[in-house]
């Protein structure tokens, strides 16, 4: 019920509507909730989270990369620790 799906804005169709491509399927989506800048065309090519026909959030690519990097580092740290404890034995 509360889930959303990421899609890319491929065409601005009006003041509150854009065409969004979700996995190859294009659908008109309401963009009122993400249209916060002065220039609506800034939204073109942006990835948004779509929920029941409404784009609810512009996905922040930098934050997505940061989240993934954090986990990568965690993996490296575990590996280092494992090596370290292995070296002790």
């Amino acid at each position: 019920m509360c889930l959303g799906i990421p899609g890319k804005i491929v065409e601005i169709q009006g003041s509150d509507t854009a065409l969004v491509n979700v996995s190859g399927i294009k659908r008109a989506v309401n963009i009122t909730c993400v249209n916060t800048s002065n220039n609506i065309h800034d939204l073109l090519d942006k990835w948004v989270l779509v929920h029941v026909g409404f784009a609810m959030s512009v996905i922040d690519d930098e934050e997505a990369a940061k989240t993934l990097a954090l986990i990568e580092n965690l993996g490296e740290m575990e590996e280092n620790l494992a090596e370290f404890s292995g070296a002790q034995n």
Binding site: P6, K8, S23, W47, L74, G75, M77, E78, L81
Partner: peptide, 23 residues
């Protein structure tokens, strides 16, 4: 799919499983 596949990566899940277990 972008923003989906990378958050289902098995290698990452494995890393996290290890970290969760130790803590």
């Amino acid at each position: 799919m972008q923003y989906v596949d990378e958050f289902r990566d098995p290698k990452m899940a494995e890393n996290l499983t290890q970290s969760i277990k130790s803590l």
